[in-house]
Nucleic acid binder design. Structure first.
Lengths: 153, 153
DNA sequence: GTGCATGCAAACGCTTTGCAGTCTG
DNA sequence: CAGACTGCAAAGCGTTTGCATGCAC
């Protein structure tokens, strides 16, 4: 994860905390650190486990509320792949990307494509839509799983 | 909704029913009829309401299991927009489409674009992925809502 | 008749919240 | 100190399922 993105996130969060009169607590700081430092797209469960690897005591509700806070601050984004639990990732500052998801091993690769973005805008325009956001996910098998998937396993 | 698509769906379902030794019941037939005839993307709740407008007695579980059956038969597809309840739509036979969703009025417009499809395949290939399926949703405001959205309302 | 289908109600899994106690600023 | 924050436990909500009864074939 690029350090600049993390720094940008911390900065934005810091501002938000001040503006909203939020407080820094041991748990909150910890969850934020873990979220920012661990790459990927993690569920609340996973985040809680990761946090607990560092200290022993953080409630699920606190993780939940902290991620909500991060979303309000515009630092985190919630995603739903399949019908699993929500996953969180660092918000995009200016940039944008979509996802390739391996249905066998769960691997998630990010991609972005200006051609598709452009094309989308055209389509929306043609239908009189004003685009706010979009979501584009490609599901399949990653290179490592293509050959050796017994499905059942 | 084009009659051919409905017919194709009925045919496929019929075959599946026979193959699997499934039975036709009053409720099941009714749910299937409603699902096939009512356009759009409906939730189980909505489908149950629609069915009950025709007769008085169909349990939620039956709607649930019937839609599951339709999915197994390859006649229905489940979709999740936002974090709402699942919505069902008639499966695509050969074709494929994606969605434009109005965040103000809930209107859903279907679209398809070969350029995007092609581009997707390229991207997947580049990452060593074998594509199974994808999902592409564009959220925004439809023509009717662009001007007069008070947001709060 | 046999066996799938139905409907109710309860179980589930994730998400969200009330509340009493704790801690930050 | 006041007001936020935490953790637990319980409530919500949509989704699934067990079971006794009913119906299609």
């Amino acid at each position: 994860m690029s350090t600049e993105r993390i720094e940008a996130a911390r900065e934005r969060l810091g501002q938000y905390m001040v503006e909203q009169g939020k407080k820094n607590t041991r748990q909150r700081d910890l969850i934020v650190d873990v979220f920012l430092e661990v790459e990927g797209h993690h569920s609340l469960q996973e985040l809680q486990v990761l946090v607990r690897q560092r200290v022993g005591t953080v409630g699920y509700a606190t993780v939940y509320r902290t991620m909500k806070l991060l979303m309000d601050a515009g630092v985190a984004v919630e995603r739903h792949f399949g019908s699993d639990a929500a996953r969180f990732e660092l918000a995009e500052f200016g940039t944008h990307h979509d996802h390739l998801i391996c249905e066998a091993c769960g691997k998630i690769v990010e991609f972005e494509d200006p051609v598709i973005e452009e094309r989308q805008d055209q389509i929306a325009r043609r239908h009189g839509f004003q685009v706010n956001r979009h979501r584009h996910e490609i599901y399949g098998l990653c290179a490592g799983c293509v050959g050796n998937v017994t499905d059942g396993a």
